[in-house]
Design a protein around this nucleic acid. Structure first.
Lengths: 214, 214
DNA sequence: TGAAAAAAGGGGAAAAACACCCTTATATAA
DNA sequence: TTATATAAGGGTGTTTTTCCCCTTTTTTCA
C-alpha cells in the first residue's frame, strides 16, 4: 500500500534541517516534502495546495518568524496540519506557549530518533504525542497558576534592550526622548513586574526571554 | 573498491547526532562508526583501537567535556585523527580556539549538506577544509593581535558569577571574605581587562563565555 | 636574591542607580 | 458617565556604583 505521510521541516540551521530530513526519510511511511528556514518561508510555501503536508516539524527558536508565532498562524489558516515542536528549549513557559499555539507535540532535541518516529506515528494515529517530561510540565503548569503572562509594552522592551547595551539611564533617556525621571519610572515598574533586584536582573530576564540576543 | 572512510559524531543532542549520522551515511564513501554525547564519552570510546575513526565531527558547545578541550586531547593522543568542528557559534574567539586546539575545519550548522560532504572529502584529501567565512576570520585575527587570551583567575570568575546573581558588591565582598574596597579593585580591573563599561558588560561577557549559565 | 609584577586593600568624590511616592492626562470599561 | 486602569512625567533622598588615585604585601622570575 502507498500509505506515506508527508512531513515539512522548519529549522533555521540548514545542515540540521537537511540532517533531520535525511533521518525522517529513513522512516517507513514518512517522507519529507521540503524544508524551510523560518516561519515566513513556510507560510509562503503553504499557499500552494500541493505543499500542504500532514505534519510540520517546527523549530521554536528561529529568526524572522519564530516557531510559536508560525504555529499560531498555521493552526488558524490550515487547521488540518499537525505541528510538532522540536527544540533545545526546556523552558516551561516556552513549552506551554508552543502548546497553546496549537502544537500537537513537543520534542526536545536530545531524544532518540525512535522517539521522533513514534511521535510522528502517534500524531497521525491519535492526533498528538507527548513525552513524559512534557506531560509533567503541563500538569505542573495547571496546578500553579504561573500562566499569567507578563505583558511588556513596546516602549518597555525598547528600554530593556538599551539597558542590555551597557547604556546608562541618562543615555537611554536621550535615545528615547524621555526625561531621566521617566526612565526611572520605567525601571522601577519593571523591577516590580519582573521580580528582579537590579539592572542585572533585567538583563538576565531579557536574555532568557529572547528580548536581547547575545 | 572498498574505500570507505569512518566518521564519529560528537554532539550532545542525541536527535541531532543521529540525524547527522543519517546524513553522513547517505554520503558515498563515508559511514558513521558511532556517535557520542560529549568529549568524555568520546575519549572512553577511542581507547579501543577499532573505534579509531578517520574523522571526528565535533560539536563545540557540549556539557562535561566541551569540543575545544576534547579536540586538544584527541590531537595529542591520536594525532592521525582529523577533527572537524561543527557549531552554531559564529564567534571569532571560539573559532580560533577550536582551530588552535587542532581542528582541521570549522563548519557552521547552517551550511548546506553538500558543504559537509565536501568538507569530509577535502579533509581526507588535503588534510583540511575551510569555508570562506572562516578563512576570513582567520586572516582578520592574524592582522589584529586579538589573539592574546584574556586569562581570568579563579577568584575573578567567582566574583563575576556573584555579580551575575544580582548581588551588590557589598554582598559579594561578604561572600568572598574580602573588603568592599578589594571588590572595587576586582571590578575596575575586569572592566579594563574585558573592555566593558559597567556590571552589565560583565554579565554579558560571562554569559557569552559560559562563565555564568542562565 | 633583588627588581618587577601582581594581588590585596584603601580614600574620597562624583555619578548613577534605586526606592518611594506623587501628578496629570487619556483611554476604556462597567 | 463615573470609576478604573494606564501611560507619561516628575520630586526627593538614600544607596550603590564607578572612577581615579594611593599603599602594602606577596609572587614571580631574571
Amino acid at each position: 500500500m502507498e500509505a506515506s505521510y508527508t512531513i515539512v521541516i522548519v529549522e533555521d540551521h540548514i545542515l540540521l534541517s537537511q540532517a533531520i530530513a535525511s533521518l525522517v526519510n529513513s522512516f517507513k511511511d514518512f517522507n519529507v516534502l521540503y524544508t524551510c528556514k523560518n516561519g515566513k518561508e513556510l507560510l509562503t510555501k503553504l499557499k500552494t495546495p500541493k505543499n500542504i503536508p500532514d505534519i510540520i516539524l517546527m523549530d521554536v527558536n528561529m529568526p524572522i518568524l519564530n516557531g510559536i508565532e508560525a504555529t499560531e498562524i498555521v493552526k488558524k489558516e490550515y487547521p488540518t496540519i499537525k505541528v510538532i515542536a522540536l527544540s533545545v528549549e526546556e523552558n516551561d513557559i516556552t513549552i506551554i506557549k508552543m502548546l497553546k499555539a496549537g502544537a500537537k507535540g513537543y520534542l526536545l532535541k536530545d531524544v532518540e530518533k525512535d522517539v521522533l518516529e513514534l511521535a510522528l506515528i502517534e500524531t497521525i494515529k491519535n492526533g498528538y504525542y507527548h513525552t513524559k517530561d512534557v506531560s509533567n510540565i503541563l500538569i505542573n503548569s495547571l496546578n500553579s497558576d504561573n500562566t499569567d503572562e507578563i505583558q511588556l509594552k513596546a516602549r518597555e522592551i525598547e528600554f530593556i534592550k538599551h539597558t542590555c547595551s551597557e547604556m546608562t539611564y541618562r543615555q537611554i533617556a536621550e535615545k528615547m526622548f524621555l526625561s531621566p525621571k521617566t526612565i526611572d519610572g520605567y525601571r522601577d515598574n519593571l523591577f516590580q513586574k519582573l521580580h528582579v533586584k537590579n539592572r542585572i536582573g533585567l538583563v538576565l530576564y531579557a536574555i532568557k526571554n529572547g528580548i536581547y540576543k547575545i
